[in-house]
Design a protein around this nucleic acid. Structure first.
Lengths: 115, 115
DNA sequence: ATTATATATGCAGATATCGGCATATGCGGG
DNA sequence: CCCGCATATGCCGATATCTGCATATATAAT
């Protein structure tokens, strides 16, 4: 039986409020993509490091003791959601975070957690 | 061969800076748990709705056209990370977000995305 | 006590994600 | 041109996540 057959506790006013204020799915999906940046330890470590200083793949790998392949994979993901950008200098590719806001959002989280 | 055998481009000063400013893994894992709240469309929809108004499971289910079981599962996850709390009134269990900050973090994301 | 409603939980299939190996590609040096 | 270093990519196994069904539990009404 469908839920729509059941008596809704939800009062019309509240329902309207939710219809009005709920971001459309398009926005919510954008948020999901964005916050997914921070939903994996490897990724958040990389972002965190890049927030402090630009680095090349090999340095990230060495610094965080991660397999080079793993770093490349995660950098590709981070790049695909626009969290980082890269510039090539000869053989070496340097990565930086695209926006100061990335760090601010992380600090919000730190604050929320009360560290 | 280990990365530590390779020549580090990383300059000592930068390395020290990263060692100093990188949050410890404990904190990073906390952040991962926290931001994972928003890393799934179903969860973010539920949180988003609860941000606007307290609701019971059945209303969330009806409102967002989600299977009741799915809602319960996600509410359990959200509760386990402290994002929501519940109060029972007879047969009905009402859920609310635990903190205004949850919404602020989401708004940060919205802002970042430029909506 | 029985029944109905609201919610929670165990389980399993479908799917997604992560990480590493093997390998490809890009690039500079000799 | 060939080799070596830096990085990227395809593939796949391991693992995690999500969802829904079946069912359990909680509570109220009769």
């Amino acid at each position: 039986m469908s839920n729509t057959n059941k008596v809704m506790l939800l009062d019309k006013r509240i329902q309207n409020k939710i219809d009005e204020y709920m971001p459309p799915d398009e926005v919510l999906e954008g948020l999901v993509n964005f916050f997914s940046i921070f939903s994996d330890v490897t990724r958040i470590r990389i972002v965190s490091a890049l927030t402090i200083s630009e680095m090349c793949v090999n340095d990230i790998s060495a610094m965080l003791r991660l397999n080079q392949t793993t770093v490349s994979h995660q950098l590709r993901i981070l790049k695909s959601v626009g969290a980082v950008k890269s510039k090539r200098q000869g053989k070496i590719v340097f990565y930086t975070v695209t926006s100061e806001q990335i760090n601010e959002v992380m600090l919000n989280g730190v604050e929320y957690l009360g560290y």
